[in-house]
């Protein structure tokens, strides 16, 4: 039976379902999936959810005006552009205001502990300081992971090169470092990939299967992960987009612009 949704849309729905009405969602570069999820959640069950730091001035998705925040309903483009240092004015969780409670983070590598690496992949056959692939840099992800009450990891690649036992360079720390620092309860909220949904809320603090997308087997996901995944007693299947979600997705992104941006690596 053919799907009437894309993998990117499924991933977006997973995140949207987890967002709540009181969330303030910020998203940065190359995280259109976060924007899509926030808009979807706003439309379906979280009307007071706020979206910050759009950064879409540099992009050209023509999102439906009705999808955007109340202040920008007349805009034909997402152009909510905020000063890059705005996050610091009220980013600290102990501050009077809260910039955001939710952020989205990805990486060249993600490891079993939920650490991310946006710095680069080392050439292991050579000296440690030689790069096989120099990444773009971590931008504000190390601090955003601390600013925000929860952060989601996502990757449009689920393969051995991305999901590694230990990242080459730590941009955002994983549970190993966080526990050593005295933060046993701090870890990514979820990790969403084209194969499934994963989490770290377990005794081991290593990546655990929460659900696998329809058609994905445990063997397949394990073959494409560079470390042993923690398996639940019963592996759930990720719920496919409902008719309400599909309708809302069409409304917030009639031209499929958001999902096209992020999902160029997916083959649906």
């Amino acid at each position: 039976m053919s799907k009437n949704y894309s993998t990117a849309q499924l991933m977006t729905c997973v995140i949207a379902r987890d967002l709540s009405d009181s969330d303030r969602v910020a998203f940065g570069l190359h995280a259109g999936i976060g924007l899509g999820a926030a808009l979807l959640a706003q439309k379906l069950h979280a009307p007071h959810l706020q979206i910050r730091h759009g950064l879409h001035e540099s992009l050209k998705p023509a999102l439906s005006p009705s999808a955007w925040t109340a202040e920008k309903r007349t805009e034909s483009r997402v152009s909510y552009f905020e000063s890059h240092d705005e996050m610091l004015l009220w980013g600290n969780p102990t501050g009077s205001q809260t910039f955001s409670s939710v952020f989205f983070i990805s990486g060249l590598q993600i490891d079993r502990y939920g650490a991310t690496n946006l710095v680069g992949i080392r050439n292991q056959a050579s000296k440690p300081h030689i790069w096989l692939v120099r990444g773009p840099g971590s931008i504000g992800t190390p601090s955003a992971a601390w600013f925000c009450a929860k952060y989601y990891l996502f990757s449009f690649c689920h393969d051995l090169r991305t999901f590694v036992p230990k990242v080459d360079v730590v941009s955002v720390p994983g549970t190993d470092r966080l526990r050593a620092l005295g933060y046993p309860k701090k870890f990514p909220r979820l990790c969403i990939t084209p194969l499934g949904v994963f989490g770290w809320d377990n005794a081991e603090g290593t990546m655990k299967i929460i659900s696998l997308h329809p058609g994905v087997t445990i063997d397949e996901v394990q073959e494409r992960t560079g470390f042993e995944l923690v398996r639940p007693d019963r592996v759930r299947t990720t719920e496919i987009p409902s008719s309400a979600e599909q309708k809302a997705l069409k409304e917030i992104d009639p031209k499929g612009e958001i999902f096209k941006l992020d999902s160029t690596m997916l083959r649906d």
Partner: peptide, 12 residues
């Protein structure tokens, strides 16, 4: 530096 790369309409 902190970040080098550009997000355009066809991706990063």
């Amino acid at each position: 530096t902190s970040f080098n790369g550009l997000e355009l309409s066809d991706g990063f």
